[in-house]
C-alpha cells in the first residue's frame, strides 16, 4: 500500500471512503458514512429526518417552547377560541387550554410511546425470530405457533383487551402495543435468518466451535438488524396511530394528559362548530407519522439496497 494512503487526514472525505482503513474505528465510521451518503441522496428521507429531529427538539424543550400551561386553561376568557386568536396561535379547547402548548407537551408522550414500544417489541421479535430461524425443529415450531397466536388477533382488539385487563393509562397502553407489535418482527427476523443459516459463513463459525448462542448473537442478529430497523421505523407511524386510537377510546393516556389521540377524542363533541380542537392534534399525528414513514423509506434504501424501489 502506498505511503500516501496512510497519511490521510482523519475525517476527511478520502479518509472516510478509503478502501484500506487502518483502524477499527476508521472502518466503522467509513461504513456509517457510506450509509449516510446513500441516505442523504434521498431528499424526502432527509425531510422525514428533519421532522423527527424537530419532534425530538420540541419534546426536549417543551417547557421553554410552550407559551401556556398545557394542563390548566383560562375557562373564563379563553374557551374554544379559533386559531390565530391573540396569544393562542392554534386556538384553545373547551377548557380554555392553549392547543399549541398541549401539542408541544403531547410530543413527549408520543415520543415516549414510540421509543418504549420499539425498545420492548423490537428486541423480543429479534430474539424470537433469530432463535426460531436458527434452531429450526421443535423450537421453531413452538415459537412460531406462539407468534401465530399473537398474529391471529387484530392489533387494536388485543391491545384493548390488555388495557381492559390492566386498567387504562399510558403505561398499559405502551405495554399493550408492544405485546401486539413484536410478532411481525419475529417473522421478518426468522425469514432473514433462514436465508443464511445454511450459508458457508455460518458453517465457518460453527467450525470454529462457536456455541449456538454466540452464533445467533454475534453473527445472525447483526444481519437481521438493518431490515428490522427499517421495519420498526415504518411501523412507528402505526404505533402512533394505535396509541392515538387507544387514547381516543379513552383507554390510553387519561385526562388531563395532553395525548394527541385523547385530544382528538375530546374535540369530537364540537367537531362541527369548533373544528380546530380535533383537527390540530390530527394534523400533528399526520405530520409525525409522515416523518417516520419517509425516514423509514430512506433507511430502507440506505441499509437494505436489495429491497429498494419497491
Amino acid at each position: 500500500m502506498s505511503v500516501v494512503e496512510q497519511h490521510l487526514k482523519p475525517y476527511s472525505r478520502e479518509w472516510l471512503l478509503s478502501d484500506r482503513p487502518t483502524s477499527r474505528k476508521q472502518a466503522r465510521i467509513g461504513r456509517a458514512y457510506v450509509i449516510w451518503q446513500r441516505f442523504a441522496e434521498n431528499r424526502l428521507a432527509l425531510f422525514g429526518l428533519m421532522i423527527i429531529i424537530g419532534l425530538l427538539f420540541v419534546a426536549a424543550f417543551a417547557d421553554v417552547l410552550a407559551p401556556h400551561n398545557p394542563l390548566q386553561g383560562d375557562l373564563r376568557y379563553a374557551r374554544l377560541l379559533p386559531p390565530g386568536s391573540d396569544g393562542y396561535l392554534l386556538g384553545t379547547d373547551d377548557q380554555g387550554r392553549d392547543i399549541l402548548s398541549r401539542l408541544i407537551h403531547g410530543s413527549r408522550l408520543t415520543l415516549l410511546v414510540v421509543v418504549l414500544v420499539a425498545v420492548i417489541a423490537a428486541p423480543v421479535g429479534l430474539i424470537v425470530g433469530t432463535v426460531s430461524g436458527y434452531a429450526g425443529g421443535w423450537v421453531d415450531a413452538v415459537l412460531m405457533r406462539i407468534t401465530d397466536i399473537f398474529l391471529a388477533f387484530p392489533k387494536l382488539v388485543l391491545a384493548l383487551a390488555l388495557v381492559a385487563a390492566l386498567g387504562p393509562g399510558i403505561e398499559n397502553a405502551i405495554l399493550a402495543i408492544a405485546i401486539t407489535s413484536w410478532p411481525p418482527y419475529a417473522r421478518i427476523a426468522r425469514a432473514e435468518t433462514m436465508t443464511f443459516r445454511n450459508s458457508e459463513f455460518i458453517s465457518a463459525v460453527q467450525l470454529m466451535g462457536a456455541s449456538p448462542f454466540r452464533i445467533v448473537l454475534r453473527h445472525v442478529m447483526p444481519l437481521c438488524l438493518s431490515s428490522l430497523i427499517v421495519r420498526v421505523t415504518l411501523d412507528m407511524a402505526g404505533i402512533i396511530l394505535t396509541a392515538a386510537g387507544l387514547g381516543f377510546l379513552g383507554l390510553g393516556a387519561q385526562p388531563p394528559l395532553p395525548e394527541w389521540g385523547a385530544m382528538i377524542a375530546s374535540g369530537r363533541r364540537f367537531i362541527l362548530d369548533q373544528w380546530w380542537v380535533a383537527a390540530m392534534p390530527g394534523a400533528a399525528i399526520l405530520i409525525v407519522s409522515l416523518g417516520f414513514n419517509l425516514l423509514g423509506d430512506g433507511l430502507r434504501d440506505a441499509l437494505d439496497p436489495k429491497e429498494a424501489g419497491q
Partner: peptide
C-alpha cells in the same frame, strides 16, 4: 476447514479483523 466459495464463506458485515478475531476469542 476451508470452503469452496470464498464469496460465501466470509461474513458480509464483518471486517477481516473481526473475522480473524472470532476464532481466537472462541478458543
Amino acid at each position: 476447514m476451508v470452503f469452496q466459495d470464498p464469496y460465501g464463506s466470509l461474513h458480509p458485515r464483518q471486517t477481516v479483523d473481526r473475522l480473524l478475531l472470532e476464532p481466537l476469542a472462541i478458543h
